[in-house]
């Protein structure tokens, strides 16, 4: 994850981060006017932008997604939950390019064949799940919105945009950016990583198991369908704020740990 820090030393990456953020916010803000469920979410076709930018600009897009979402939130109400919105969108912009490097063996992220599209969909699902886990967990912990609502809406919203819009945008934009040598690999001067290595495999397993576990436990606990026997009975009562916080945290830690190993 060190490129998330080192990218700030490069002026072009800083500019690309601002451009990713502004593009994300520019599509996000107009849809704030017609919220899907006010206070919870709005229709977010903008969620296609972080995925596209992630494949193009790597770490700059991760920060761009986080900042773009923050700017969008300024137009729909900022709150303490935005800390988790920031973290959730950071991983939503970080996971796609990072996982793609591992699962696609250097191929461009253009879902032209069925196998590539499946890989692409799985990578987007992994990014969406971790984003939903972090935001759902944080908002439930802060007693703002239930995990069972937010955790699922985010996955649906992100996947809809990533599967319907992002592939079309990538097909149009990726070859041009590649020719213009503005891909993150060209700017940061890093070689295409070869998949493999035990740590990387452990990282992928931890990431996927952690985020899936967090999503399941978050949903089951917040709806009262799972009783965490280790926790005192006083915490296992609606609105389950503390129960969700404590039950989901270990899975999230595992997922973030896995992300660090990639």
């Amino acid at each position: 994850m060190k490129e998330l820090g080192s990218m700030w030393q490069d002026s072009r990456m800083v500019v690309l981060c601002a451009i990713s953020a502004a593009l994300y916010a520019a599509v996000l803000v107009p849809f704030k006017v017609v919220p899907f469920i006010p206070g919870i979410t709005e229709l977010r076709p903008a969620n296609a932008i972080p995925v596209v930018c992630s494949f193009l600009f790597g770490p700059a897009a991760a920060w761009g997604a986080a900042i773009g979402n923050l700017i969008g939130d300024f137009f729909g109400g900022v709150g303490p939950g935005d800390i988790f919105g920031f973290a959730g969108n950071l991983v939503y912009g970080y996971v796609p390019y990072k996982l793609w490097e591992i699962v696609a063996s250097g191929r461009p992220p253009l879902p032209r064949s069925a196998a590539d599209f499946l890989r692409y969909a799985l990578v987007c699902l992994a990014a969406s799940l971790l984003c939903a886990d972090l935001i759902g967990w944080g908002d439930n912990m802060l007693a703002l919105r239930p995990f069972g609502v937010l955790g699922n809406i985010i996955v649906v919203n992100n996947m809809l945009a990533a599967l319907v819009l992002s592939p079309l945008l990538l097909l149009a934009v990726y070859p041009r950016v590649e020719r213009g040598r503005l891909l993150y690999r060209d700017i940061l001067g890093v070689a295409q990583r070869r998949p493999g290595g035990l740590m990387q495999a452990v990282g992928v397993v931890l990431l996927l198991c952690g985020e899936l576990g967090a999503w399941l436990v978050g949903n089951l606990v917040s709806t009262g369908r799972l009783n965490l026997g280790l926790l005192p009975a006083s915490l296992m009562r609606p609105p389950y704020d503390a129960a969700v916080a404590l039950g989901v945290a270990p899975f999230l830690l595992a997922a973030v740990g896995g992300l660090a190993l990639l």
Partner: peptide, 18 residues
């Protein structure tokens, strides 16, 4: 400073992109 700059630059670019 660079993070703050990126945030303010992004804010400035949003209306231009819209």
């Amino acid at each position: 400073y660079r993070v703050g700059f990126a945030i303010t630059l992004a804010f400035r670019l949003v209306p231009l992109f819209i």
